[in-house]
């Protein structure tokens, strides 16, 4: 059978090709900065960044070491994400079950969800000042839509036979929602949490642009004012790596859930 794309590479080939891709990227970066093609204060070399990261791991910059900045960021992120999941998942489930709630909330939600998290920065600053509320609000606005949409879709399009079985067995609304709708939607919900977690983490720098007193985003802003580009890139790398770890972790959970359910 002819596949619609080219032949998929084997695992070994995949590893090799991935290494080549990464090496080319680093090489290109190195070449541009080391050759002087781009001025060094605009683009630090990979080695500068490595050295700077090493330094930041133990020495404070902008009031804290990189791990300390990360810890503060993760704390804000956890609040924002948990709030998004805690509101989005139940609301999505209820919207999937009660059609009147769906009709009421969907227009509001659709009106707001294409506004990028960073667009809330001015109001976050205005309403919360430099308190923790601002970053939480921005991370929330990034993580919330997938949490809600997936829970809603999971509940709305749950296989009717499960609902019918529950009704035949004399199950009331509350128990049907908790023991049928929720578990039936669980794979969709977990997928939504994973996407929401990623989008929430992406919103972090925006969240910490203005309102933070510590945090990776704050560190990067301070790096920019001090014209320390290696600090900025070190922050980017830290965000990228932590985001990757979060994603891999949640993918494992998602795979586990699907496996338990016999889906994959």
């Amino acid at each position: 059978m002819r596949s619609s794309t080219t032949r998929p590479p084997s695992t070994a080939e995949r590893l090799l090709l991935g290494a080549i891709g990464l090496a080319s990227f680093l090489g290109l970066w190195w070449g541009m900065s080391a050759s002087g093609l781009v001025a060094k204060q605009f683009l630090p070399t990979p080695l500068d960044v490595l050295a700077r990261t090493q330094y930041l791991l133990t020495e404070p910059f902008a009031g804290a070491t990189l791990p300390e900045h990360l810890a503060r960021s993760l704390e804000r992120y956890a609040y924002g994400f948990l709030l998004a999941a805690g509101v989005g998942v139940p609301l999505g489930l209820l919207m999937g079950w009660f059609r009147w709630l769906d009709a009421m909330v969907t227009p509001v939600f659709d009106g707001l969800r294409f506004i990028a998290p960073i667009a809330w920065v001015p109001f976050a600053a205005l309403w919360f000042g430099t308190g923790i509320g601002g970053p939480i609000m921005i991370i929330f606005s990034g993580a919330f839509p997938p949490c809600l949409i997936n829970a809603y879709r999971g509940a709305r399009f749950v296989d009717a036979k499960y609902i019918e079985a529950a009704r035949m067995l004399g199950t009331g609304s509350l128990r049907t929602i908790l023991e049928v709708l929720l578990p039936a939607s669980f794979p969709a919900i977990v997928a939504g949490l994973r996407i929401g977690a990623g989008l929430g983490w992406q919103s972090l720098v925006g969240a910490e642009l203005i309102v933070a007193s510590a945090g990776v985003g704050y560190m990067m802003v301070q790096g920019q004012s001090n014209i320390s580009t290696p600090t900025v890139v070190a922050g980017m790398v830290a965000i990228g790596l932590v985001g990757l770890v979060i994603d891999v972790f949640l993918r494992q959970i998602e795979a586990f859930v699907r496996h338990r359910r016999g889906l994959a």
Binding site: K161, Y162, E164, A165, R167, M168, L169, G170, E179, V180, P183
Partner: peptide, 15 residues
């Protein structure tokens, strides 16, 4: 529907 009329579904519909 109600438990006074139990149904065995063609496609089981187990949870």
């Amino acid at each position: 529907p109600g438990p006074d009329r139990a149904v065995v579904f063609q496609q089981f519909a187990l949870f």
